[in-house]
């Protein structure tokens, strides 16, 4: 931790949290790495809190849960979680996680990454993992821009929004991520904002327990770049905006839930359907075809 000496003004008093009490999530955090790198009023930390709460709620064995991140602000998520955590390359969190999940079917593998990582450079991997109904939970933190590199336009930047590579406003048509996930084959699709912490937590717990490919988009404030460039105030102002503009509509047709610039954001759980997950499907198919000759893959502990 960097040493910053406190100003020596006499009026400064620094109250301390009582020693014996610990944040209930301490056990899930690499506290030695805190404070994290995310800006003040950024929502990523809130999503991480919801993830830990969702994981606790799911009742899964935390030692059998792995987190994979890509690159970018959200890509740093893995580095703060005291789980088996992997910080892979830009866009490759999903295929890395696919390898991890296939390498040991006992694991629950979660990808926590950003909109650029998952939907732009990793877009092809994302749709194919969904197509396979791969045993993955994807939490995509959508802040509408590439924040780590300075606020460039991305695959979800709404039309009209300003970005450093769209200085006159973005004019490309953005992805509607829940629609993309659903049409690619995801069995669980939800969208929330960083303000909907309890509902995000519930969705994460549900997704973790759902076999196959589950996808949760969490719209999150980026104060330093997206909000600043678009004169939207701080992250708190964006949270207020979500408060006023998010409309909960469970089961909404994902075709109708595009996010337009500073307009209504439809949130909710859109898809929760049954379809054989990759492992189950592969096992059943191959044992049908090969009979006794089939030796199922049981992971590194299996043989």
């Amino acid at each position: 931790m960097s040493e910053i000496s406190a100003p020596t003004t006499s009026t400064l008093k620094i109250p301390q949290a009582p020693d014996k009490l610990q944040h209930p999530m301490t056990d899930f955090l690499r506290t030695e790495r805190l404070p994290h790198i995310w800006c003040s009023t950024c929502g990523i930390g809130t999503v991480i809190t919801a993830f830990i709460a969702g994981l606790q709620k799911s009742g899964l064995d935390r030692n059998k849960v792995s987190v994979v991140s890509g690159i970018g602000c959200s890509g740093r998520a893995a580095g703060y979680l005291r789980l088996d955590s992997f910080h892979s390359t830009h866009g490759r969190a999903v295929p890395f996680a696919t390898g991890l999940a296939l390498g040991n079917p006992e694991l629950k593998v979660v990808v926590i990454s950003g909109d650029g990582d998952i939907a732009a450079i990793g877009g092809n991997h994302f749709i194919h993992a969904a197509r396979r109904n791969m045993n993955l939970t994807i939490i995509c933190i959508n802040n509408f821009n590439y924040a780590m590199t300075g606020g460039q336009a991305g695959p979800t930047t709404p039309e009209e929004a300003n970005a450093s590579t769209a200085p006159f406003g973005a004019y490309e048509f953005p992805f509607n991520l829940p629609y993309l996930a659903e049409s690619s084959g995801a069995v669980y699709v939800a969208r929330w904002t960083a303000l909907h912490i309890r509902r995000t937590t519930k969705s994460i717990a549900e997704a973790l327990l759902k076999p196959g490919f589950s996808f949760i988009e969490v719209v999150s404030p980026c104060p330093t770049l997206y909000a600043r460039r678009n004169r939207l105030g701080s992250g708190l102002d964006l949270m207020r905006f979500y408060h006023n503009s998010a409309k909960i509509q469970h089961g909404a047709d994902t075709r109708d839930i595009d996010i337009d610039y500073q307009k209504e954001i439809v949130v909710g759980k859109f898809i929760d359907k049954e379809k054989p997950d990759f492992y189950t499907n592969r096992d059943q198919f191959l044992s049908k075809k090969l009979g006794d000759k089939y030796i199922p893959y049981r992971g590194p502990n299996g043989h």
Binding site: T89, R92, A97, G99, L107, L286, I295, G299, P300
Partner: peptide, 30 residues
Amino acid sequence: PKVGGMFIQMEDELASMAAVVGAAWAGPKS
């Protein structure tokens, strides 16, 4: 499938190599 191995045809070589690294950290020789 007859020796207890896991084969997957990925969507491209970027994904193939990433999956190999991921799988190796799950335990199997990849």
